[in-house]
């Protein structure tokens, strides 16, 4: 997944920061954690990591023995406050890079990366809220970094995550989200399942639509900060619906991905 750039748009307030060269560095894989049948989290030790903002991503570069290289971008899942850098990667069946990361890579291996990249689709507790996070599938990864950051600094900015998954088994971070909600009265997590649902499922079971967003989100009178991440149809649909409901386009930030969009 990646930050919007193919020719992006939207949003005006760019904050100038001092240029700093992004060099490739070697990270060590400390642990590979299975999240769902198709996703793994890579826990990385990165010597001299300069820190990141929740929502940013890194570039990964793989090199074959004959020198052939492939690069892709992956969102950072960990909070800036976490000791280790964590990436959560979804295995794309026809992918070149993701199957290597999810199936081949193991603890003790080295991985070349550079970052952090992307300063727009990012949130810090001081940016305030209320926050509306809308995720489709592994689009939840950069949003999870925001929720982890929010918890790490004990922020009480009201936050809601509306999270669309294909099935119960494919909900990434399900248990951690339950824990976060249990200990935090100002956080709500609302799931919707689009393909199959377990017996007794009482939450939404359809694609995210305008009606759902009206029910879940704060009214337009509240100036919310919205972050939407997922496949293009979901992002297009949700962003358009939020504007239709009356939210200010300036505060609706999007990030899109797909099998060809950068997850690789």
């Amino acid at each position: 997944m990646i930050p919007g750039v193919s020719s992006a748009t939207g949003g005006t307030s760019a904050v100038a920061v001092q240029p700093r060269r992004l060099s490739w560095q070697l990270a060590e894989v400390v642990e590979v954690v299975p999240e769902t049948p198709r996703t793994r989290s890579l826990v990385l030790e990165v010597a001299g990591w300069k820190g990141h903002k929740a929502g940013q991503h890194v570039d990964i570069r793989l090199t074959a023995e004959d020198g052939y290289q492939a690069q892709r971008s992956y969102s950072i899942a960990s909070a800036p406050e976490d000791e280790r850098l964590v990436l959560t990667v979804e295995r794309l069946e026809d992918g070149e890079v993701s199957p290597y990361l999810t199936d081949v890579l193991m603890a003790g291996d080295k991985l070349e990366l550079r970052g952090p990249i992307g300063g727009y689709f990012a949130w810090e507790a001081k940016d305030g809220g209320p926050l509306l996070l809308v995720a489709g599938g592994s689009g939840v990864v950069p949003l999870m970094a925001m929720l982890r950051h929010r918890a790490a600094v004990s922020s009480d900015v009201p936050a809601r995550l509306l999270y669309s998954s294909r099935s119960y088994e494919e909900i990434i971070y399900r248990k951690e989200l339950e824990r976060l909600v249990a200990q935090d009265g100002s956080l709500e997590v609302i799931h919707t399942l689009t393909r199959s649902r377990p017996k007794g499922w009482s939450s939404y079971h359809r694609r995210i639509d305008l009606k759902m967003l009206k029910e879940v989100g704060p009214p337009p009178a509240e100036r919310l900060l919205a972050f939407i991440c997922g496949p293009t149809p979901l992002v297009e649909g949700v962003a358009t619906a939020l504007v239709e409901i009356g939210h200010d386009t300036l505060y609706v930030k999007t990030e899109r991905f797909g099998p060809t969009g950068g997850g690789g």
Partner: peptide, 8 residues
């Protein structure tokens, strides 16, 4: 692929 930073 479609990549944009905000609503269309």
């Amino acid at each position: 692929p479609v990549l944009s930073a905000g609503p269309t």
